[in-house]
Structures are given as structure tokens and as C-alpha cells.
Amino acid sequence: MKQQDIYDDISSIRTIMERSTRFISLSGLSGVMAGIYALIGAYAAYTMLYANGGEAYVARSGNADVLHNTNFKLFVLAAVILIVSVSTGILLTVRKARRKGSAVWSQSSKSLLLSGALPLLAGGCFIIILFMQGHYGIIAPGCLIFYGLALVAASQYTFGDVKWLGLMEIGLGILATALPGYGLLFWAIGFGVLHIIYGTVMHFKYDREGNVN
């Protein structure tokens, strides 16, 4: 047995173990796009809440009609951002996987989605129930913390960098809990700025060298 063969064997064990357990076609660019959508959404939410001299914001303790109207608009806005972000993410990830010739619906991507889905579903229910009870302050910190937990849980099936993004979202969420009243700002930082930074890093770290492969 030649020395080169041993090294080849070992490196093939390494890469195959990595590839069999981790889904590495996640697109960095989709993170940047999600961040941009989030910033646009946060701005839209800001104008809704604080338009007309903050009528809607003040209404949280007063006028029920204005309150319900604003809540509904915010809910639709959030849903639109979520749907657009997720579809962009799926589209860019499928494109990246195709280009690299690897499968999108694989054992690793299934594990990735399953492990991330649980904290997201639990958090989603938790936030919606508290929201309906009138605890509006819970939305931003809740979203950040549960999203962060989902990222940390899912990170074992993809790039390790996702874990760091998750930890930062959790930290930001806790900070937002401690500073009530700045929810929208923290939400914009967590979902907007952090996503853009993370996506840019990922794009230059993996996507570009991925083109060579």
C-alpha cells in the first residue's frame, strides 16, 4: 500500500462523513436577501406604528378599532416577509445544489429541517398565544430567541457558522427582553443586519469556492 493511498483513504473518509451528515448547499446570498426584506419590513412596521403622530402605538392602551386594524396589518406584513424570505431561500439553495450536482431533498436536509422546525413551531405557538393575550412586548424578543434556538439546533446538520448566528440571535433576544420598548429596533438588527452580515460572510467563504468544485 502506497503512502498516497493512505492519505486518500483518510481524506475520503473525512469528506464522506461530512457530506453524509451535513447539508452544505445553503445559500449565503439568501441570508443577505432575507436581511434586506427584514429591514424593509421593519421600516414598514415602523411607519405603521408611528404614523400620524404614533396614533396606533398610543392606541395600544386606548382605541380598539385602530389597535385591531394595526395588529392585522402587522400580521399580514410579517407573513409576507416570512413567505418571501423562505421562498427566496429555497430558490437560491436549490439553484446552488443543482450547480454543485448534489441533491436538495436528502437525508441531511431532512434532518436539518426537522431539528429546526421544533423550536420554531413551539416558539411560534408561544408567541401567538401571548400576542393574543395582549403581551405585544413578547414578539421581538420571542422571535429572536426561538429563531436563535432553531438555528443552533439545526446547525449540527449544516455549516458550523449557523450556530454562531443562532447564539447571537439568542443573545440579542435576551437583551431585547431586558430593554422593553426597543423591540422593533432589536428585531431589525437580529433579522436584518445579522442576516446580511452572516450571508455575506457565508457567500465569500463557501459559495464562491463552491463554484470551483
Binding site: S12, I16, M17, R19, S20, S102
Partner: peptide, 17 residues
């Protein structure tokens, strides 16, 4: 290597990988 790193793996996924 795949079977040591994962609890189990199916035929088609192995083939693709």
C-alpha cells in the same frame, strides 16, 4: 464511514452520495 457517522442510511441516498 457513512454508516458510522449516521444512525442509518438508505440505499438511494448512499447511491447519490
Amino acid at each position: 464511514s457513512v454508516l458510522v457517522a449516521n444512525e442509518s442510511y438508505d440505499f438511494n441516498s448512499l447511491k447519490e452520495l
